[in-house]
Design a protein around this nucleic acid. Structure first.
Lengths: 356, 356
DNA sequence: TGATATAAAGAGACCGGTCTCATGACATAT
DNA sequence: ATATGTCATGAGACCGGTCTCTTTATATCA
């Protein structure tokens, strides 16, 4: 009865004003915490507001101030530990500055990303953090700029966009990890990524539309090249998008005439799939195959052996992106930058020393 | 120059109307997709809108319609795989119905939860899904009801609140898992949870303020009782809130005169900590100690041995909560219900058969 | 005592949409 | 030819805040 009978129109400043016998403007001053009001009136209004259980309509507030207090975040896949940890970092930075976060998932699809961006702009977010699925379709991001909404790219940079980006130092990370593998005596190294497969393997590194993937491949290839190893592109495999695909990729890879002795997995999901795949093929790590995965995910420390990983300091990455965006929103004068967070190799037990 | 020089006031219906040489009302009809407009005028307005790159201000739209198209979700900890998977389920259900999701983290703290709820109500969300940190402080949730905002509780029920709840069948899950352990010959069983420790162990099950935790403990105790095992509360341990605490809890537990032979971990984070703790104590699973964890987390399938788990079908749980809330928002006539999603025991290798 | 400064409160425009109601044009019925 | 109805468009109120500008009351000074 009490709930359904009163669909109860929410209490507004006008209601509070009437109850406190003051003008709407005065009540608004108290409730909004601006302007000058006498102590007596202030108490009067506060009391009336409490009695009526007044809650400000943030929507209306945003309407007139033009600020929503919301930061929009478009990520590739929230379920991925990489993103959920990054979101934590972003959220913490945002909350510290008094902003809230609204999250949208693009599923790494450019159209979903586009509509998510449009939607958030429509909600008049104060700023936007986007993980661009591709670096070649930019209209929607250009539009964000033109709409005057601060934008920070996350995990992937797009130099031609002239906008801040926060990423790991992917090139260096791959370089370091690969050098380490080479240093342990490995000569045939594979790189496995979840990026959608192009036909017939990699031929054109510069053409990879995802900068994070591209930089990692570049680092990987550089390390092989500087070590004088032949055919650096030979063992690069894309398309490890799910367990089934990964398994297929792994079977093909390991049934080559000279199969690789070490694998570099492009992210923790791929790493997990690769590890499972090796298990089901009856291969043991690192005796039969060595591996390194990106990201310090849960699972990497409890396997036997624990997995050697490239720690991307994802939380910091997210926090930095959040802080950068806040600075932009607050119009702090800053040059456009590509901030790279250095990564660190955490050596555990998944890489064997061979050929000595 | 071009970006900074034009802080570029966003394009409004009025601007489009002027450009299309029609009234604001007519332009709004076309842009908002309501009312009746002749085809000719419609094209005219559409063209003008495209030329000006008009984007509707969803805030203003929400103001006048009273609907924001947003569902608010307050979770305990987004970083926890349980919640991030649930959020995926919620988000999918929401998007299917045309809603967006805004996520807030309570950190399982009642005050943070309170302010998150207030904030979301302020943003005029169309509905709210909350994981209540406690079942005894309810003012803010009562207020949600009074404000006329549909509410669905997630993972934990509060019967006295007369509101929908979607949870796993925690009692049954714990009962089944415990019975299984007993069936494998275990007689000394421990239950380890991350809930804040009360002094001196558990004495009053009915007093546990988190219904999910309470039901699991009840199920655990029921199974022990029906098997005629003595002292069912003896090995229940709370306070496994981080790796350090968990380690302390485990040391104490396993240095008892008759230590437990099997452990039930209340969630996947606790499970992971327990597993790591066992590793560092040099104990092997299941030879030295058997264990079962809640939630089919990543790590549980790649350990040696893989962990026997209680699968809570979390994605479905989230999806169901999302669907239920959408139904409420759309005023589908439904009785208030506590929906329980049945769980299933996935037997892998972390439980030994003993004493035969 | 009157002039002026200053603090506090009120009146009402505004943000950008939605939506009701009024108006005008044209077609059909009488 | 006049009345009636329908359809497309225009005018303007409204949502619930913020904020500028104006008015009123009180204090300060010559």
């Amino acid at each position: 009865m009490e709930d359904s009978a009163h669909p109860k129109r929410p209490v507004t400043v006008a209601d509070v004003a009437k109850a406190a016998k003051v003008s709407k403007a005065t009540a608004a001053r108290v409730l909004g915490g601006y302007g000058v009001v006498s102590v007596q009136i202030k108490d009067q209004v506060t009391a009336a507001a409490a009695a009526l259980e007044y809650r400000p309509n943030e929507l209306a507030r945003s309407m007139s101030t033009g600020r929503s207090g919301i930061i929009g975040v478009v990520v590739g896949d929230i379920e991925n530990a990489f993103f959920s940890l990054a979101v934590r970092g972003i959220t913490d930075a945002a909350r510290l500055a008094g902003f809230n976060v609204i999250i949208a998932n693009s599923g790494e699809e450019i159209d979903a990303e586009k509509s998510a961006v449009d939607l958030l702009i429509g909600k008049r977010v104060d700023g936007l953090i986007v993980t661009p699925a591709r670096c070649d379709r930019l209209d929607h991001l250009r539009h964000v700029r033109r709409a005057g909404v601060p934008l920070v790219l996350f995990d992937r940079a797009i130099p031609e966009l002239d906008v801040d980006a926060v990423t790991g130092d992917d090139r260096d990370a791959a370089l370091t990890a690969t050098r380490y593998l080479i240093g342990q005596g490995h000569r045939r190294l594979a790189y496995v990524s979840a990026m959608d497969a192009e036909e017939g393997g990699i031929t054109d590194i510069a053409g990879i539309s995802n900068s994070a993937v591209r930089e990692r491949v570049e680092g990987f290839v550089s390390a092989l090249t500087e070590a004088g190893l032949p055919n650096p592109l030979h063992y690069i495999r894309l398309g490890a998008t799910d367990q089934h695909q990964t398994h297929a990729v792994m079977r093909r890879l390991l049934s080559e005439i000279s199969p690789p002795t070490a694998l570099l997995a492009s992210d923790s999901l791929v790493g997990l799939r690769v590890f499972k795949s090796l298990q089901s093929l009856g291969l043991s790590v690192p005796q039969d195959v060595s591996m390194i995965s990106f990201l310090d995910a849960d699972w990497t420390s409890v396997t036997v052996p624990p997995i050697t990983i490239v720690d991307q300091h994802v939380y910091d990455l997210g926090k930095l992106a959040g802080e950068r965006l806040v600075a932009r929103i607050e119009r702090t004068p800053l040059a456009v930058e590509h901030l790279r967070v250095t990564t660190s190799l955490v050596v555990r037990g998944s890489v064997a020393t061979i050929g000595r």
